[in-house]
Design a protein around this nucleic acid. Structure first.
Length: 554
DNA sequence: GAGTTTGAAACT
DNA sequence: CAGTTTCAAACTC
């Protein structure tokens, strides 16, 4: 999705000193829908959302980016002085942002370092920023982990982060020039942040955001409605950042698995955080201080090892790093309120294999992802509240012969579901009264997270997740990565077929076989026939890989 | 907080 | 490819 620099420049200028309003964004979003050739499709559904909420989001975003910008400069040793009042005002949000964005970009930056070294001629603002930040990173990565985590507010590799927009805003004279020099701004990440936040609130849910975007989603989300599924997340994040030494477990108590949407923390002991066991690694982020891992190699200093390992894993399973949950765009009507828009409108890319949990606990990846089980699942006794394998929910499943349990113990099943939901309600008093997954999905609480109000880490996930775009099998080497770094786009002819999905033809549904024979279907399967890519108030944002493409390394 | 359960990932 | 082991999160007490 591309937004003309001028448009954004104008918007940012207009927004200087005042929050961006939805009305400011709408034209841009509409513009986005016209830029279909970039494989990022945006539908102007936001307009149907609660404008007030969206404006709140926007306001926060602006505030956060402003502060982030200041912090970036601080990290860079810049003498620029931020507006202290502004900083104070937005401290909370900014801290959240910092905490959230801290890691997901590290891989990107690590990868792009070489690129930048090799390609110094690129002097656009983004590259400069990246370079500067790289420098900052190099200095801060390990020795000053805290700083690295809290201050490195790096622009996502692809697109122009709102951070950058703030930067544009602050350095009009200098940076806007760069931005407007015939270059298009890809707002993938930042916009997805904004829109997905909006959409999640409005449950227009067909948002697909990158992992990094996903990370950014919640803070603003929660910032607006702190009483929802993630109680006081901002405070939590603030605590995290201000009290860096606070033990992980403390945080885990206050915050579900310590995961404010993407703020993953692992506890690996033997895997060195270099296997998919490690949530951080699997999510494409470096481990950070709050992790309790041991002998962790998933750190910038071990970049090469990480990349190598990742490559190896991807060679074994190209979709290993793809988002686990593929959100479908098809089942969301344009009204904005969709009774059928349960999390079951998405699928787990590979399906679960639950035996004992009945897909009612977070052991089940489908349930954890807030999606129903599907034909891809090999679970036994599926009672997934979001949709059972037999299609009792809104999942399109045909001819699936269900297990014996489906009919035999419905009582127990309902009991179990009820129990789960009761649990959820207890954990989320705010959502009490919402009793069914369906309703939960419609409420602002997207799913009956089994406990702690933690949205599944993949609840909102990306169509073109890291696995897809980083996979050398699927993407032309360097193409997406480098282009995203320079706000360029992926030419159609360089786009793997499965990633294309032109308007006319449904995207081919790839089903690859993982080494263990598990079925892996392309996320695009669910999106292929999305009828409303343009007019359907849906937003599908292309994301960047959390890990850089390995092909960058000669 | 320790111990148990669970299922994905990894291995054979 | 099926069976087994390893692993770490989820869960229970």
């Amino acid at each position: 999705m591309l937004i003309e620099a001028e448009a954004f420049k104008g918007m940012m200028q207009k927004s200087s000193g005042s929050p961006i309003r939805l009305s400011d964004f709408v034209p841009l979003l509409q513009q986005c829908t016209r830029n279909d050739d970039q494989k990022i499709y945006m539908v102007d559904s936001v307009a149907s959302s609660s404008q007030h909420e969206i404006e709140n989001h926007c306001s926060e975003l602006v505030a956060a980016t402003d502060t982030d910008h200041t912090q970036d400069n601080l990290a860079n040793g810049s003498s620029m002085t931020g507006n202290s009042n502004e900083k104070m005002d937005n401290e909370l949000v900014s801290v959240t942002h910092r905490g959230i964005r801290r890691r997901c970009l590290d891989f990107e930056m690590a990868s792009v370092r070489r690129k930048i070294a090799d390609d110094n001629s690129n002097t656009n603002s983004s590259t400069q920023q990246s370079e500067t930040m790289n420098a900052a990173n190099e200095n801060q990565l390990l020795p000053a982990k805290r700083n690295a985590n809290s201050q490195r507010c790096i622009l996502p590799g692809i697109g122009l982060h709102l951070n950058a927009l703030a930067s544009v805003k602050d350095h009009k004279g200098k940076e806007i020039e760069n931005l407007t020099s015939g270059r298009q701004l890809s707002l993938t990440s930042s916009t997805s942040l904004l829109l997905s936040a909006c959409q999640e609130h409005q449950h227009l849910s067909v948002v697909s955001v990158s992992i990094s975007s996903e990370r950014e989603l919640v803070p603003s989300d929660n910032g607006v409605q702190p009483t929802e599924d993630c109680p006081q997340p901002i405070a939590y994040m603030a605590t995290e950042d201000f009290n860096q030494n606070s033990p992980k477990k403390k945080r885990r108590k206050s915050e579900p698995v310590g995961e404010i949407e993407g703020c993953k923390r692992c506890n690996c002991k033997k895997s060195k955080c270099l296997k998919l066991y490690c949530e951080c690694f699997a999510a494409g982020v470096y481990c950070i201080e709050p992790c309790s891992c041991q002998e962790c190699f998933n750190k910038p200093i071990h970049e090469d090892t990480v990349l190598q390992t990742r490559k190896q894993i991807e060679s074994r399973n190209p979709l290993a790093f793809a988002p686990k949950v593929i959100r479908s765009a098809d089942s969301v009507p344009e009204t904005g309120i969709d009774p059928n828009k349960t999390p079951a409108s998405a699928r787990h890319k590979r399906g679960c294999n639950c035996k004992k949990s009945n897909c009612l606990k977070k052991y089940c990846e489908c349930y954890q992802g807030g999606v129903g089980c599907s034909i891809s699942c090999r679970c036994e006794g599926c009672k997934n509240a979001f949709g059972r394998k037999d299609g009792s929910a809104s999942i399109g499943i045909e001819g699936e012969t269900e297990e014996e349990t489906e009919t035999s113990d419905k009582g127990a099943e309902e009991k179990a579901i009820q129990k789960t939901e009761i649990q959820n309600i207890e954990d989320h008093p705010d959502s009490a009264g919402v009793s069914t997954p369906l309703r939960l999905s419609r409420s602002l609480l997207p799913m009956p997270f089994s406990s702690k109000g933690k949205p599944p880490r993949s609840f909102v996930t990306t169509l073109t997740g890291s696995g897809y775009l980083t996979s050398q099998k699927l993407a032309k080497p360097n193409s997406l990565w480098s282009q995203s770094k320079t706000f360029q786009t992926v030419p159609d002819d360089e786009m793997p077929e499965i990633l294309r999905g032109g308007d006319s033809s449904p995207i081919a549904c790839i089903k690859t076989s993982s080494p263990n024979g598990k079925r892996i279907s392309s996320p695009n399967c669910e999106m292929g026939s999305s009828p409303s890519r343009r007019g359907g108030r849906k937003l599908i944002l292309q994301s960047i890989p959390s890990f850089p493409s390995l092909t960058h390394h000669p």
